[in-house]
């Protein structure tokens, strides 16, 4: 019995030794997110516009109904999102929008530091979502 106790304690003590600590010293230190992490959305740009063609699939599939798309026609006669907005306060980061997108125009980045000061700051419009 004592043997087992000592064994357990030794593991604990081992972790207390420098270099073995799992606590990340956030915000001084930040974790690298795994590739499939679902953080803030990003709209993927093309050289002259956004890749999104305003097909309305992501607002349709979104369970939190936090995506607003308004389609319009640009000078070239193409369909594009005149408005693309995500209310990140309502978003549940499920990633359905990414899955639904037929154009691979929307992805989820590793950005998770989304705290902000006013409600309006949580409305991510097209310009903000297009930022790299």
């Amino acid at each position: 019995m004592f043997k087992e106790f000592a064994k357990g304690l030794s593991i604990t003590l081992k972790h207390l030794l420098p270099g073995n600590c799992t606590t990340v010293q956030y915000p001084k230190q930040k974790l690298e997110m795994p590739p499939r992490f679902r953080g803030l959305h990003r709209l993927i740009p093309t050289p002259d516009r956004e890749k999104c063609v305003a097909c309305y699939l992501c607002p349709t599939v979104c369970p939190a109904k936090c995506i607003t798309v308004v389609a319009a026609e640009n000078e070239a006669g193409e369909k594009y999102p005149a408005v693309f907005e995500i209310d990140i306060l309502r978003c549940i980061f499920c990633g359905y929008c990414v899955e639904a997108c037929p154009m691979e125009a929307i992805e989820m980045t590793d950005a998770y530091e989304l705290a902000n000061f006013s409600r309006d700051d949580f409305h991510f419009d097209k310009q903000r979502l297009l930022k790299p």
Partner: peptide
């Protein structure tokens, strides 16, 4: 081009 087609 269903994504941009109104019939979609």
């Amino acid at each position: 081009d269903c994504p941009v087609c109104d019939a979609g």
